[in-house]
Amino acid sequence: MSELAVLIEESATRLFEGFADSDAHVTMESGKFPEKLWADFLADGWLRTMLSEDNDGAGLGLAGGMLLMRLAGYYNVPLPVVESLTGLYLAAEAGLELEDELLIPVVLPAIVNGNSRIELCGVPWARYAKGLVVAFEVDGKTQLVNIKAGQFSLVEGNNMAGEARDDVSFDASLLASSKPLNNISTEQVRSWLALGRAAQMAGALRSVLERTVEYANERSQFGRQIGKFQAVQLQLAVQAEMTSASICAVDAAIKHLGSTEEWELIASAKITTSESAGYAAKTAHAVHAAIGFTQEYPLQLSTRRLWSWRDEYGSETQWSAKLGEHCLQLKTDNLWSWLTTQTGS
């Protein structure tokens, strides 16, 4: 693990571990924002993880933010960690006024002309946002606008983990007050959000694996621990393989942030984590049996997130199609010479 990762893990763990015994999940799922946890998150300065020091940030950049997101996934933190960090980062890059507040990043589809109202489905945490930072493309350039709370209307909805995913609409004329977002494409914003989710999933996958192995070593049936049965061992071994592949894919994508092959590695990270999510959840529930199916037992906090997150910001099908299309249209002699650029040459 890099020094940066150790630093972030040590200090964020203190905060995230603490909330596990709190009622933050219940609060969040009952449709209220976990204000106390959010206040602690802000007080520790985590919201500004990715901002430069000029912007009173920690200067840890996108990579530092992604590591925090992975940890948040591990602890099932019921806060918009991916969205709030990315939203504020985009606002800073566009030179918008920066407050410690919840800004939710949104990328508009390419064609918006002619519609007087912009309608967006499943915007994460929108009901709690102080603003939506909306990125869109005009003549090949990226623009960013902060659509403030009160300027958009919404219909509440949730994903399978009870996280707010609201349908939002606002007046298209509001886009006129946008500012240029230099050197960042809308595609990049999309891929960063996908990597954020992939990082959360990598964390959740690790947590599910640890919990399941622990359970298999404790629970006894037929006179021995269920983890001693080869049938169970083989399934858990595969789960461990897929989990470590997911962590590696996310780590590699983080390492390549800012490089020309950035999106390719992000695609592979989102594909790998999304694919692993289903297998891990299925296996963990099979091993836990009935107890894992209850609300009281915490496994569901991770598995419901994995089932939701694997489709958010692009499922493995969508990212595979995009990556595959790219590979089928390469200008290089063959796939191989393109592949090897991803590890340094």
Partner: peptide, 11 residues
Amino acid sequence: VIGEFVARLMV
């Protein structure tokens, strides 16, 4: 399908 296999190979 190509994308899926390329992603696995990358990892």
